[in-house]
Design a protein around this nucleic acid. Structure first.
Length: 711
DNA sequence: CATACATGAATTTTT
DNA sequence: TTCATGTATG
């Protein structure tokens, strides 16, 4: 989140009103760039002054990144001690916290596992008796949406409208049984189960309602039905009741209905509509002054969003002056588009256009509707030797080698975590094949035990051959030993020694070289593994050397760190300090800003997106329009919008039509063709770049990209 | 059983 | 164009 221009001093009247409304329910409609995070952090400071303890203030976000940034911003205001104690977390981590503390009240062991979506997919294939990944993914999708709507298995069955959904509901029933047996929960359960706990257990409900003196919810427009219910439960509104009594705990919901772009994953604008009804005392405050963008940009944004029906009246304005007009770029093809965008970046950096001279690469972003659009830009940027980063690229923790190691850690923490067991027992290969595992699985299922428990059953000998049993026992013995050792490490050095010993025991490095065809790839993966070890060791704490001296941080055992692994996993540093151009989807760009933004591929069919033979509903179109609005409002100083005259669809190339949103921006300018002189200059520069970028460096870049190394 | 080739389908994403 | 799944062949 960004320090708005007014960061130095005072809050504007609307912001002040939001900050000072401490005692009742409050909805802050924060337009794009209106200083939303400032309001939240100042309100936190105000609440502390008013006498609340830091631990009584909960600020809930959607991503770990947003939570980390908010804590950082709060720290600047209230100091490190208070900031550390504030409960700033995602819905999901708050859920984990509640379940680890009190999950036993609803029959969940305190060391339950959290399945990631790959695990879930595997379990679903199993439950549905299908090896079809696409089918399992559809089930996963359907089940997740049901859970997000607060439906249990019975309700889902009732809601299923067609045969596919009925099958999905049946799979869901077996899936839920399986989760219970594993003592595992999925991501959706991290919201749903704490809610269920509060609804079913009056004591737990009272405890958690008493926990917080004020609850703040960021990006409120992105909440789904279950998240809203959980929030209501926490602040003391009767969850799910038709006419909820007013809440006892004051809260602040901060959001922008015009930036609601996650309807497709269950977020519902109903939550905004219902807030004033569920909380009649609700104070609604709109933040309309924008501290980010210039007049031309803001006017285009307002013009586009005016095409949507309004929930709350709100119009952005700015004192930053008119700035540069929005530029429309008309392109022959995707390649042409990428080349022109690259030329624009180079021109602005060289200071040739307007007042935008001397910019860094990090001042630029290219935003698009779908991930695949990044590809051409990557090519052209590489050819021009411009460093870049692609949003939503494969995360460090999605990599196979990291997941392998995580599976081991999960198994140590929770022996009943069968997906983790299956992954750990087969990586590296230790002569335990699927025959053996199938037999073990059957045996365990019959006894209603987890695989790990079944491992040591004396009667297992009847079901399996001696050699297989020996292998399994050896594995089990080693896992137990590792668990024991992991519980008794103290601090980072100790942890590192243990983890390296473990990797050696597994012969994991050898395994990588054996399973990867090129040594170079194996090397890259091994270095990921070592990074992972360091990362865990750091989290285990101990003596830390930093600029300004050494610090002693709290020490944790490897076991303790492993317990939190799947939830903290995505906090990992993503190296955001380097000077690179950003390529990002519009969705991933929400909440960010850049001085110079290009919206690429703004064509009918792409934005608004339309699947083949899809009938576009009004709601769908409105969400696409909000997406366009989000894109426009990312820009501080210049905005360019490009569209394609020829567009690829599948194999064939079809005529491209500029997006209706382009007309809706009501730009005075006519679409600009490329100036012939500019074109010549560009082509010349490109030729030079192409000569310069030797084959070798291109090959290296390709190799790096393949190995997943950051550029 | 494993590899080679053909065919078909292609949003958005966090936890 | 690419990726993944399906079919045919050795």
């Amino acid at each position: 989140m960004n320090a708005p221009a007014s960061a130095t001093g005072t809050l504007n009247p609307a912001q002040l009103e939001a900050v000072y409304h401490l005692d009742g329910p409050c909805l802050v409609l924060a337009g794009a760039g209106s200083g939303k995070t400032r309001v939240i952090t100042h309100k936190i400071a105000k609440l502390l002054h008013a006498g609340l303890e830091p631990r009584q203030i909960a600020a809930i976000t959607f991503t770990n990144k947003a939570a980390a940034e908010m804590r950082e911003r709060a720290r600047a205001l209230v100091g490190p001690r208070a900031a550390k104690a504030l409960v700033i977390s995602t819905f999901h981590s708050l859920g984990v916290r509640m379940l680890r503390a009190d999950g036993e009240r609803i029959g969940l062991k305190t060391n339950f596992s959290i399945l990631d979506s790959d695990d879930v997919l595997g379990v679903l294939r199993d439950c549905g008796g299908s090896s079809d990944n696409a089918l399992a993914r559809r089930w996963q999708w359907a089940i997740s949406l049901w859970k997000n709507q607060g439906l249990d298995v019975d309700a889902a069955e009732a809601a299923a409208g067609n045969d596919d959904e009925r099958v999905a509901a049946r799979v869901m029933r077996r899936y839920q049984e399986r989760l219970a047996a594993y003592q595992a929960v999925d991501f959706d359960d991290l919201i749903g189960l704490p809610l269920a706990m509060m609804q079913r257990d009056a004591e737990a409900c009272a405890k958690w309602q008493a926990m917080f003196g004020h609850v703040l919810v960021d990006e409120y427009q992105d909440t789904n039905a279950v998240q809203y219910a959980l929030m209501k439960a926490l602040v003391g509104g009767a969850p799910g009741a038709a006419a909820a009594p007013p809440g006892r705990t004051p809260f602040t919901a901060v959001g922008d209905d015009d930036q609601s772009i996650y309807g497709w994953r269950g977020a519902t604008i109903e939550n905004l509509k219902r807030l004033p009804l569920d909380f009649p005392a609700l104070k609604v405050i709109a933040l309309e002054q924008n501290y980010r963008s210039t007049g031309h940009i803001l006017r285009a944004a307002n013009a586009v969003i005016a095409g949507n029906p309004k929930l709350f009246e709100k119009k952005l304005w700015s004192e930053l002056g008119e700035g540069e007009p929005v530029k429309v770029i008309e392109c022959d093809s995707e390649e042409h588009e990428a080349e022109r965008v690259v030329a624009r970046i180079q021109a602005l950096r060289g200071g040739r256009v307007g007042e935008g001279g001397g910019m860094k690469f990090a001042d630029f972003a290219v935003l698009y509707r779908a991930n695949h659009q990044a590809k051409v830009f990557e090519q052209k940027l590489r050819a021009a030797q411009i460093p870049y980063r692609v949003s939503g690229g494969q995360s460090y923790f999605d990599r196979a080698e990291i997941k392998d190691l995580c599976a081991w850690l999960r198994l140590i923490v929770n022996n009943d975590d069968d997906p983790a067991f299956l992954r750990a027992v087969t990586t590296p290969k230790r002569g335990i094949g699927h025959q053996t595992l199938a037999a073990l699985g059957e045996f365990a299922a019959k006894r209603k035990e987890s695989l790990f428990e079944a491992l040591f059953a004396p009667t297992l000998a009847a079901a399996l051959k001696g050699k297989a049993i020996d292998g399994l026992h050896e594995f089990g013995r080693y896992a137990n030993e590792l668990e024991h050792r992991a519980r008794h490490t103290t601090g980072g050095e100790d942890a590192k020694a243990l983890l390296l010993q473990w990797l050696q025991d597994l012969r994991y490095e050898q395994y990588l070289y054996d399973s990867e065809e090129s040594d170079k790839l194996a090397q890259a993966r091994w270095s990921n593994v070592l990074d992972f070890v360091d990362w865990i060791a750091r989290r285990c704490g101990g003596v830390l050397t930093q600029e300004g001296g050494t610090f002693e941080t709290e020490r944790h055992s490897v076991f303790e760190v492993a317990q939190t692994i799947s939830i903290i996993i995505s906090i990992a540093e993503r190296g955001e300090d380097s000077d690179v151009v950003t390529l990002s989807t519009l969705h991933a760009a929400k909440g960010l800003e850049w001085p110079h933004v290009v919206l690429a591929g703004v064509n009918e069919g792409s934005l608004p997106f339309k699947g083949q033979e899809e009938q576009m509903s009004a709601e769908r179109l409105e969400e696409e329009r909000r997406l366009m609005y989000v894109g426009i409002t990312r820009a501080r100083r210049t905005l360019a919008v490009s569209w394609l005259k020829r567009r690829k669809r599948g194999r064939e190339t079809v005529a491209g039509v500029p997006s209706r949103f382009l007309a809706e921006m009501k730009l005075d300018e006519v679409a600009t063709k490329e100036d012939p002189r500019e074109r010549l200059k560009r082509l010349r520069a490109e030729l030079a770049a192409r000569v310069q970028a030797s084959e070798a460096s291109a090959a290296k870049a390709a190799e790096d990209a393949k190995a997943g190394a950051p550029t």
